[in-house]
Design a protein around this nucleic acid. Sequence first.
DNA 1: GATTGACATTGACGCAGCGTAAAGGTGTAC
DNA 2: GTACACCTTTACGCTGCGTCAATGTCAATC
Lengths: 254, 254
Amino acid sequence: MEYTVQKLGRLAGISTRTLRYYDQIGMLKPARINSSGYRIYGQTEVDRLQQILFYRELGVPLDQIKELVTDPSYDGAKALKEHRKQLLDRRDQLDLLIANVEKTIALHEGRTTMTDQEKFEGFKQQMLDENEDKYGQEIREKYGEDTVNKSNAKWKSMTQQEYEEITQVANEVTKTLSEAYRNGDPASDIAQKAAELHKQWLTYYWSEYSKEAHAGLAQMYVDDERFKAYYDAEQPGTAAFLRDAIQIYTGLSK
Amino acid sequence: MEYTVQKLGRLAGISTRTLRYYDQIGMLKPARINSSGYRIYGQTEVDRLQQILFYRELGVPLDQIKELVTDPSYDGAKALKEHRKQLLDRRDQLDLLIANVEKTIALHEGRTTMTDQEKFEGFKQQMLDENEDKYGQEIREKYGEDTVNKSNAKWKSMTQQEYEEITQVANEVTKTLSEAYRNGDPASDIAQKAAELHKQWLTYYWSEYSKEAHAGLAQMYVDDERFKAYYDAEQPGTAAFLRDAIQIYTGLSK
DNA sequence: GATTGACATTGACGCAGCGTAAAGGTGTAC
DNA sequence: GTACACCTTTACGCTGCGTCAATGTCAATC
């Protein structure tokens, strides 16, 4: 039985383009070329194509399939195991992605019906409440009534997108800071990046940013036990480290 | 704070090429171009890049990210859910692939330590045993001592690869035949494909193929109750159908 | 003021695995 | 004779950049 590209394609359920491609890359050459230049495939080629498609269905990349079907000494079992490992890795990655996407969706949905009250949970809630309770006076005096009011107003009018970003930035601050702290140098690139992220995070709350206010807040992180406790929770000394980094970042180190 | 491509790249942990690419596709354009043609990014761009990278980590394709970050009316939640669906589909596919690869590996490994005894299980064992028991004489007389001996010898020296292929082909014969039978015409393409697959399967056992022997075997499938029972198990009449198809295939129809 | 080295620019090819024309030759049936 | 299905090669397109190549710029050093 002899086949032209289209016949073989139909037999195997693939396109003629694919067959010509496989010819081109030398994975499956026709048995012969007839006088008109047509590709003619024979039984051997059909068998081989079957093998190729078998491995292809397993998701093995073409160059590996080529090895498998051309080199009989090639260790098929080993190749398959290697391939399996790659597939498993890919699945792990996918699982991570899915978990993250779902987290984000949950955030979205939660937020849609989130009351102002609910909005301020966890650390951020504490921070705002405590800010108002204990530092309300102090901060208002220091930075002016307007700044504080604007900050709170900003919180309440926060859009979904902003909330999403803010959460992410806050996480990044924590992560980067922790990494920088292990490094030990508040002037290091990573520590400076943490300071910058912190600034970014801050600008979500502050309608106007100033180096002085930033540095002042950083000092407060150390002086006040509650803030200090938050930052030092994982590793003692982190609050002071962040203050140092921010002071360098703002150019206001003493 | 202003950034050149490299600075921003380092900050965000991506290559300058990526930044130029994002500029090119209009996803993240620099705040301005300085007099030397350098790209200069500002705070707005840093924030936006962060968003972009966030979605990128979720595996969202760039053009969708572009929508997300450029069009504020775009429904982010919906997009994310759609994306999640795609991810889940991809994972299902991956799981299927992995299962198949593992099956194949198991086959490989099982075979590695497979004894001759174990080798002949199921249908193939029956066939061979019965062949030998009941048809030993008859077949030897009909096709010659040599053919039969060679066939058995071939079985015993079968390599891993051959065994794998043979299993696959046998399955395909069954599948194709069943499909062809429903179609009803032994001269149809699909029925002829079944006949051909059957020939392929046969050549694993026969060192020499002949149309006559093939057609003869097909007739035997009908005449002998045990073979008939095997082929007719799913759908009565299949054995006769296969015989007809093979007779047409070999050009030996009466 | 000349050189060096680290940066910047645009332009273009390459990667996997084909899909999809475009521009033409071949086979066969009516 | 002509219609129509089939074949050929050539070549661009898709994603998301990596990786030259050729050239310009900036700051520091000889």
